[in-house]
Design a protein around this nucleic acid. Structure first.
Length: 804
RNA sequence: GCCGGCAUGUCGGAAUUGGCAGACGAGACAGACUCAAAAUCUGUUAUCCGCAAGGAUGUGUGGGUUCAAGUCCCACUGCCGGCACCA
């Protein structure tokens, strides 16, 4: 009787060994490979099996790279500023630092159970003053380069979190964190000029090995469009209204103009008779919530009484106010061409405005238009000097033509807005600025960083637009670093994204108190080669990080301007029926018990086996049994075979080489779930061979090597038991010999009229004639009274006989 | 509304990219071992007809291309995700 597979003992043993003798060492000669996980927020709920999956995926990849001879940078840290810790503090009157540190301790314990090759010497924590000193330093640099600026403007405000939000944090009109409807609040804000990088953020995407989906989301978010600004004279006045359009080719079809009700000129345009109606409309619009305005697509509007003059043909067009025009995009006013724009068409129909077709559809002018013709293809009509031109061509050329005529200019517009960067909350990095009545906003001198987050009596957000820090007079009142006079500190804090926008740079030089990261280490270890994390950060964290990296590149702090060469988005693990795991739903599965019962290796393998890593998967505890049985079988197989002296047959060589190819290909394509299936298949095949002659040690050792990234403990143990030297992770990833990949005999299915009827076995180099004659023989009983009209043979694959 | 993605047994999922649909695993059922249970091992398990050999049907729906379609083309339905009046 052999000893049973005792995962507890084995895993404990290797955990200790690896702690004493790390397997991933930097000898200064190896090439680096940086494999990064999205670092977790240390929540009080701890990790669930979904978090585990991402970390297992990245660890399999890291260990795979390790076995290819790389020094693998695989760090872990804590994204620890943020609302939950603060809310906990408010409720329990505990300093957030205390609860945060408790949570970190617990999550670190859980992460260690994964047995990933994290280098804990590199650990970072965004709430550590030694870390956020550099978060603040970056802000100061941005300020000095004109990229951080103050502005008073109506911003997105979450009434529940009592703080301002960035555009990216508003999802369908609701707060990304708590789901409350977002309102507008006019506040003085710190902004980051991310729009200055719009083109580079867009153009840089094309060279990244990222999922197309994420690239597309960022592309759409940045939303670049090319067009023209056109100046319309207001009839009878000295003023001009400038509109932005992507369809300057349709300028002759403009029959009215619409301005956003929030536009500062709006009130002014109202003529005596329309004043009351205009003011009423502006007031009513101001009462509408973001969500109402988004959902209600029914067109409303009001005529101002004023007219604008179309510079192309001198025609007078009425000016309306309508809330379907956005105040903060383009110029906040649009020229309306109902014949060729859906929204304008709808508005024109509702308000009885004329519709002039300027592009022929199918070569014709439509007598009674029922819907707008929005495509830029067709010949221009009703367009004066432009008649006869092709619209798609004119669309591109018109901006310059307009520019030459002097009533407009070629323009590019973006949906991306500058980043609202200040938060009116406690648990974040203080913005390192001092307001001096004489000198204005002055950055805190770099040698005085970090500006420590002070102790405060109440963490409660005030809701007034001031952060709780504003209540600490002793902290707020300071002296101006510039003139030495009395001055006040900035009391807003930074958003949670501040630290996560650059943390990956810090891991490789986390103790440096002179620089954010030394030039030498940055050149040697950065950027990130592979980034693994959820898709939920597609436009938040991943866009911000790219912006920070480009900025740090521009000021010479680093030499690259894209942080993450390759990105892998793992799917979410959900509870039953695809319901997201959450404490409130009570469907959270903790990995702790599973590790205890089945072991780390079993859970690692099962996390991958549940489905394709990039797709969501429903968790089902029962499946882990199958994985545990598989590891047990493999363990037993090695016990039975390790002391035998089995010769290396051609059959074993073929199995071994095919195994290497199958597993390697599947890791390379991230098809980790089918890699596990293949392991199981080959394990069964080896068990059968074991009964029949045995399995040689070389084959078992190769299997062990391939399994090592997935189930490191059992692999290390088996590697040793099979008599191999050193750690399996010091061994080199096996390579296959193509000459052993093909079987000597191939099985060829025989179809009659496309339906499988028999399978014949043929030598792999059999001729077409031999195969066909054998095939006919195999199905002869089914050929009675039928004639073969066509014979198809795909070499080595299939025979199809078409019969009548 | 626009743009993506997906749809395969009881369940999770596989299918070398046009070549035996259902690998691998879960679950279920039957058998072996056991006083018994657990564990383990063996077998069966898409559906329908049939005692069986065998046959027919079958990858969301309807059509098409092909010797051959889960895979390609056209139309549609459902679910998921992103954007949402961006002129």
């Amino acid at each position: 009787m052999t000893v049973p597979y005792n995962h507890r003992e084995i895993e404990e043993k290797w955990r200790k060994t690896w702690e004493e003798h790390p397997i991933n060492v930097n000898d200064g000669k190896k090439e680096k490979y940086y494999c990064l996980d999205m670092f977790p927020y240390p929540s009080g709920n701890g990790l669930h099996v979904g978090h585990w999956r991402g970390y297992v995926i990245s660890d399999v990849w890291s260990r795979y790279k390790l076995m290819h001879g790389y020094y693998v940078i695989h760090p872990m840290g804590w994204d620890a500023f943020g609302l939950p810790a603060e809310n906990y503090a408010i409720k329990h009157h505990v300093h957030p630092e205390i609860s945060t540190n408790d949570n970190i301790r617990n999550i670190k314990r859980q992460i260690k159970q994964i047995a990933a090759i994290y280098d804990w010497d590199m650990e970072v924590n965004t709430t550590d003053p030694k870390f956020y000193k550099w978060t603040q330093w970056i802000f100061v640099q941005m300020f000095k380069h004109g990229l951080a600026y103050e502005k008073k403007m109506p911003i997105n405000w979450c009434p529940s979190c009592k703080t301002g939000l960035a555009n990216e944090e508003v999802v369908n009109g609701r707060c990304e964190r708590c789901g409350s409807p977002v309102t507008k609040k006019n506040l003085r804000q710190w902004m980051l000029k991310i729009t200055a990088y719009a083109d580079r953020l867009l153009d840089g995407l094309k060279d990244l090995e990222w999922p197309e989906k994420v690239k597309k989301m960022q592309t759409d978010w940045i939303g670049r469009s090319y067009g023209a600004e056109v100046d319309f004279q207001v009839d009878g006045r000295d003023e001009k209204i400038t509109v932005y359009t992507t369809r300057p080719d349709t300028l002759y079809g403009c029959t009215f103009m619409v301005m956003a009700p929030e536009n500062p000129m709006a009130k002014d345009l109202a003529t005596e008779g329309q004043k009351e109606a205009v003011e009423k409309y502006i007031y009513e619009t101001s009462l509408k919530s973001n969500i109402d305005r988004m959902q209600d697509h029914e067109k409303t509007g009001v005529f101002t009484g004023s007219y604008a003059i179309n510079p192309m043909n001198g025609k007078k067009v009425p000016i309306y106010l309508a809330d379907y025009v956005l105040a903060d995009y383009g110029t906040g006013a649009v020229m309306c061409v109902p014949a060729h724009d859906d929204r304008d068409f709808e508005f024109a129909k509702k308000f009885g405005l004329p519709i002039i077709q300027v592009i022929a559809k199918d070569g014709k002018e439509i007598p009674d238009m029922q819907e707008a013709y929005t495509q830029a293809s067709g010949t221009m009509i009703n367009s004066g000097e432009w008649n006869g031109l092709e619209s798609s061509k004119l669309k591109k050329e018109a901006p310059e033509m307009i520019e030459k005529k002097g009533f407009g200019r070629k323009t590019t517009n973006y949906k991306l807005r500058d980043w609202v960067f200040s938060r009116q909350r406690y648990w974040g990095e203080p913005i390192p600025i001092i307001h001096c009545p004489k000198c204005g906003a002055v950055p805190v001198p770099e040698d005085q960083l970090p500006v420590l987050l002070p102790e405060v009596e109440s963490y409660e957000p005030t809701g007034t637009g001031e952060s709780p820090l504003a209540a600490i007079d002793s902290w707020v009142n300071t002296t101006c670093p510039c003139c030495g006079g009395p001055a006040k500190r900035e009391t807003n804090t930074m958003p949670q994204w501040a630290g996560s926008s650059w943390y990956f740079l810090r891991y490789v030089d986390n103790k440096n108190d002179k620089e954010l990261v030394s030039k030498e280490k940055a050149d040697k270890y950065l950027p990130v080669d592979m980034y693994v994390g959820g898709v939920e950060h597609a436009v938040l964290h991943l866009l911000y990080s790219r912006f920070y990296t480009k900025f740090l590149h521009d000021i010479g702090a680093i030499d690259f301007d894209e942080p993450f060469k390759r990105l892998f988005n793992q799917g979410m693990i959900t509870g039953k029926n695809g319901i997201k795991m959450s404490k409130s739903k009570g469907n959270v599965i903790s990995p702790d018990d599973l590790v205890e019962d089945y072991g780390c290796d079993s859970l690692r393998v099962y996390e991958l086996f549940v489905g394709p890593p990039e797709l969501d998967a429903e968790w089902d505890d029962r499946g882990i049994e199958g994985v545990y049985r598989f590891l047990t079988k493999f363990w037993r197989l090695v016990q039975e075979q390790k002391d035998r002296d089995v010769p290396e047959t051609r059959k074993l060589l073929q199995l071994r080489n095919k195994l290497i190819k199958d597993i390697t290909d599947r890791i390379e394509t991230f098809s980790l779930n089918t890699a596990i299936s293949k392991f199981m298949e080959y394990n069964n095949a080896m068990c059968n061979l074991a009964k029949d002659g045995g399995v040689d040690k070389k084959t078992l050792s190769v299997y062990t090597q391939l399994l090592a990234p997935f189930a490191p403990h059992i692999a290390e143990e088996m590697w040793q038991e099979l008599g191999n030297e050193g750690s399996v992770f010091e061994s080199t990833w096996p390579e296959y010999d193509p000459q052993y990949l093909e079987d000597d005999e191939v099985q060829i299915p025989v179809q009659l009229n496309g339906k499988a009827r028999a399978v014949i076995e043929m030598p792999k180099d059999a001729s077409k004639e031999e195969v066909l004659s054998k095939a006919k023989e195999a199905v002869s009983s089914k050929l009675d009274g039928k004639t073969i009209v066509k014979e198809i043979y795909v070499p080595g694959k299939i025979v199809n006989l078409v019969v009548k």
